[in-house]
């Protein structure tokens, strides 16, 4: 579904991703972990198409299409969804209006008629139950004055409405108390199926107890330095990121003589 090959990306002249490789297949759940500043969120934003991040090298294909040539809206239409780390408040646009516009724009792209008011309302009610979202939030301005937990639930609610093929959850666990985390995880797990892939970006292992990944990758200094199963997350939890740091730095120094001898 998604193939990331040797991606380098920078913003404001600062190199952040330095050769990321990753393949995600339908039905898989991948987790990317890593210390602060390792490039996790940059990777998510590069995938979603944020212009401020310039891809200087590498290739990304999504269902065989060159992802980097697609606008952010077309990436969404092709089935990509980013649950934002910091969902944006949009005063004056109600949650309902926002979601209805998004759903119908996606339908339009696929040549489908817009949902009528009744069908849309029914769909919304059904999906809201998934994340125990309070109905009063629908008429309020998008995310405005929502608590941290409500904002994150709203992201998962949108995911449920848009039914993406690939959902990228950027630190969806940050700022959530344990109850909210359970609700969000329950929502995500319900949406998990053999056609849908999920990429979890997280700092902590805690989320992975609720949404169990098939693969865990460690992003450090702009590269994936370790990949493994969910046990890798436990190892990280136990040893902290320092051991990755030490390991990655020693491996760099260890490979240097080799490189020299090759030249």
């Amino acid at each position: 579904m998604l193939l990331i090959q040797d991606i380098h990306a920078e913003t404001d002249g600062k190199k952040i991703l330095k050769g990321v490789n990753l393949e995600i297949k339908a039905g898989e759940v991948h987790a990317i972990m890593g210390p602060n500043g390792s490039g996790k969120s940059t990777l998510a934003l590069v995938l979603a198409g944020r212009e401020e991040y310039e891809v200087t090298q590498g290739r990304i294909t999504f269902f065989g299409k060159n992802l980097l040539e697609l606008s952010p809206e077309d990436r969404a239409h092709e089935g990509m969804f980013l649950a934002f780390q910091y969902p944006v408040e949009i005063p004056g646009v109600s949650t309902t209006q926002f979601i209805k516009t998004a759903v119908n724009e996606n339908r339009k792209y696929h040549g489908e008629a817009p949902l009528d008011a009744v069908a849309f309302l029914k769909l919304m009610k059904e999906k809201m139950r998934l994340v125990d979202m309070d109905q009063s939030l629908l008429t309020r301005s998008m995310n405005e004055g929502f608590s941290g937990g409500e904002k994150k639930r709203n992201e998962i609610f949108q995911m449920a409405m848009l039914e993406p093929s690939l959902a990228i959850l950027d630190e969806t666990d940050s700022g959530l108390d344990i109850d909210a985390l359970r609700i969000v995880a329950k929502g995500v797990n319900t949406l998990r199926n053999e056609n849908r892939a999920i990429l979890l970006i997280t700092h902590y292992q805690r989320l992975l107890e609720y949404i169990v990944p098939d693969f865990v990758h460690v992003l450090y200094n702009g590269q994936i330095v370790r990949s493994g199963t969910k046990d890798l997350a436990l190892e990280l939890e136990e040893k902290g990121y320092d051991f990755i740091r030490e390991e990655s730095e020693s491996s760099v120094s260890a490979t240097q003589p080799e490189n020299i001898s090759k030249t």
Binding site: P72, H77, P87, F98, Q158
Partner: peptide, 29 residues
């Protein structure tokens, strides 16, 4: 607001419509 623009676009709302939606929201009060 660039962040709001990207948020709308990332949900599949084309740039021009996203802009219109935000401007109308600004005018709403």
């Amino acid at each position: 607001d660039e962040n709001a623009m990207f948020y709308l676009q990332a949900r599949g709302i084309p740039q021009q419509n996203a802009k219109a939606l935000l401007l109308k929201a600004f005018a709403m009060d």
